[in-house]
Amino acid sequence: MKTKLITLLLGIFALSSSVHAQNGLAIGSALPKATIKMKDVSGKVVCLDDAKESNGLLVMFSCNTCPYVIKNQQRTKDICEYAKSKNIGVIILNANEGNRANEDSFASMKEYAKAQNYKWFYAVDSNNDLADAFGANRTPECFLFDKNGKLVYHGAIDDSPSDETKVSRHHLQEAMNETLADKPVTVKETRSVGCVIKRKG
């Protein structure tokens, strides 16, 4: 019964996300609003430029409680660690302003980052400034920028967000590998599946 309920809830979240158009940044776009200041779980105030490293930047919109975020927890950590090992900076942004007084509060973010052993930035996207600039609508949703600050990939971590056992292509890692090899990214955009970012109002 519990398994059926979880499956039903995941289906509802996926359906909710599908009604929001995939209207993010166009491939080739420059890193937007890189100087906007955000509070990281460390207590530091940071911007996207602080997270960027010599080979680029991975920006991921996420949160603490979305079932799809939870199902992708290990995959999130693995790809972020992979990025860092390749000198690609990482910043995860929580833009759930509509849930900031509850499970996506700054205090809850700190607890979540500690529990997940994050070794990269996890910051508050106040007023959805960056989610709006990126056109991000879901959690998780990924944007990969190359060493020149140009968007080369937008979408999901892999081709099976709801079931890790059925993954056949690791979209984000493949995009990183191709970018690092100075090759065009084969699959530039995929559909992000997850909860809708909870904006104010």
Rank of each mutant, 00 (worst) to 15 (best):
M1W: 13
K2M: 13
K2C: 09
K4F: 15
K4Q: 13
K4Y: 12
L5V: 11
I6N: 07
L8I: 11
I12S: 10
I12E: 10
L15N: 03
S16I: 15
S17R: 03
V19P: 11
H20T: 15
A21G: 11
Q22E: 13
N23L: 15
G24Q: 03
A30H: 07
L31C: 03
P32K: 00
P32R: 02
T35W: 03
K37E: 04
K37Q: 09
D40W: 05
D40K: 08
V41T: 08
G43T: 04
K44C: 08
V46W: 00
V46G: 03
S54W: 11
S54H: 14
N55E: 14
G56Q: 06
M60S: 07
F61Y: 08
S62Q: 08
C63L: 10
C63K: 09
C63H: 09
N64D: 00
Y68V: 07
I70E: 12
R75H: 10
I79H: 01
K84L: 13
N87R: 12
G89L: 00
G89S: 01
I92E: 10
L93Y: 05
A95N: 09
E97Q: 13
G98Y: 09
G98H: 08
R100M: 07
A101D: 15
E103T: 14
E103Y: 15
F106T: 00
K110V: 14
Y112E: 06
Y112K: 13
A115R: 10
Q116V: 08
Q116F: 07
K119Q: 09
W120I: 06
N127D: 15
D129C: 09
L130K: 11
A131T: 03
A136P: 00
N137Q: 13
R138G: 11
T139S: 10
F143Q: 02
K147G: 03
G149V: 08
H154C: 02
I157L: 02
I157N: 01
S160A: 09
V167Y: 00
R169Y: 02
R169K: 14
H170D: 07
H171G: 04
L172N: 01
E174F: 10
N177C: 06
N177Q: 14
T179C: 07
L180C: 02
K183G: 04
V185S: 06
T186N: 05
T186W: 01
V187G: 00
E189C: 12
T190I: 02
R191I: 14
V193G: 01
V196C: 12
K198N: 08
